[in-house]
Amino acid sequence: MSQDTVAPTRRVPSLVLVSGPEQVLADRAVAATLDDLRVTAPDLETIRLYAATYEPGALGVQAAPSLFGGDKAIVVHDADEAAEDLQQDLLRAVAAPEPGITLIVRHKGGNRGKKVVDALKAGKARVLEAPAIKSDRDKSDFAAHEFVAARRKATGGAVRALVEAVGKDIGELAAACQQLVADTTGVIDERTVLLYHGGKVEATGFKVADAAVTGDTGEALRLLRHAIAVGVDPVPIVAVLAQQLRQLVRVGAAGRGRSVDVARDLGLAPWQVDKARRSLSGWSPEGLARSIQAVAAADFEVKGGGRDPVYAVEQAVLAITANHTR
């Protein structure tokens, strides 16, 4: 047989497990796997099955050889929510893979469907991880990687501003990175981020908290009132105030180690450690304790314990700035 007639080798194994809760990473892993399959199978047929709407036997029907031949990818979503019928069908499919079929199983984590996960791993499935992105450090690393992957330089200040503006949702953070890459040229700096997302940055609880923990009463109240005016709920603002104060306590207790080491131990980004250290110069242990108590009281008020949530968060901000020694 000549080289021209040799069938191309499959780049993707017949079994693929996408494991982890982060939707953005999981969607990308599935899309990349399908793209790899299309290198050797341009006419690849893709079938998607979902645990919530699965009918018993559907996987076996879809995996049966087609009359017209051709490769097929079957993507099974939410195997961690699978009923017993789907789990049994998956176990049978994993035990006896059909030629020309690639089975891609999406599992967000947990014990449900663990037999399927174990069977996939025992069957030498390719495992693609989609770990949770929760901490600010993880979000900063994610955004920085997005810019590196796009071959664009972004400053640390730009990454920080972007995480503060849109970091609550990883999908929105990814879209914001893509927008900046597509709509700008040159180095992406903090000014660039503020141009596109300045309203969100200014209205977040993070900016309110930043001003409060540095003792800037006027700026903290201005930002708070602006945030309330544009529709930011008092509850997350109080949550961020509490988070920032706890961060000061944790960084202060960690001592004088290198920022990168302290950040790793505390699950923070190095820039968060540096910022906390700069803020700590105006704080005493007693002042931090009183401020944390004031924010705890505000948390009770804004969650239904009081009549005026806006007044409660204003009082918390005033308590914080009053305890700061500028």
Rank of each mutant, 00 (worst) to 15 (best):
D308G: 03
S2E: 08
V302E: 06
F300D: 06
R38I: 06
D78W: 05
A161V: 07
A32T: 07
A296W: 00
S281L: 05
C177H: 04
I133Q: 00
E172Q: 13
D85N: 11
I101L: 12
D4W: 10
L221V: 15
G304N: 09
R258D: 14
G198A: 09
I292P: 00
A242F: 01
H226T: 10
A161C: 11
G231Q: 08
A154Y: 01
V148H: 05
C177D: 01
G156C: 08
S259H: 13
V16R: 04
I74D: 11
P56N: 12
G70H: 06
A83M: 06
V61W: 15
G157R: 11
C177E: 00
S284E: 01
K200R: 15
V12W: 02
E219M: 11
A96C: 05
L15R: 06
A319W: 03
Q179G: 04
I101F: 03
D4K: 03
V6G: 02
L49N: 14
A298E: 05
G305I: 05
G167Q: 06
R106C: 13
H107P: 10
E98G: 06
E301R: 02
V16N: 09
A95L: 06
G218A: 13
A41E: 14
L280A: 03
L103T: 09
D36A: 14
K124G: 00
G231M: 08
A269C: 09
L280Q: 02
D261W: 08
A150C: 06
R307H: 10
V262H: 08
E22W: 03
G186Y: 02
L86G: 05
D71F: 02
D138Q: 15
D85K: 08
G113A: 09
A319N: 02
L245N: 07
P21I: 07
I47L: 15
T214F: 01
D35G: 02
S291L: 05
V75H: 09
L223S: 09
G255M: 09
A209I: 10
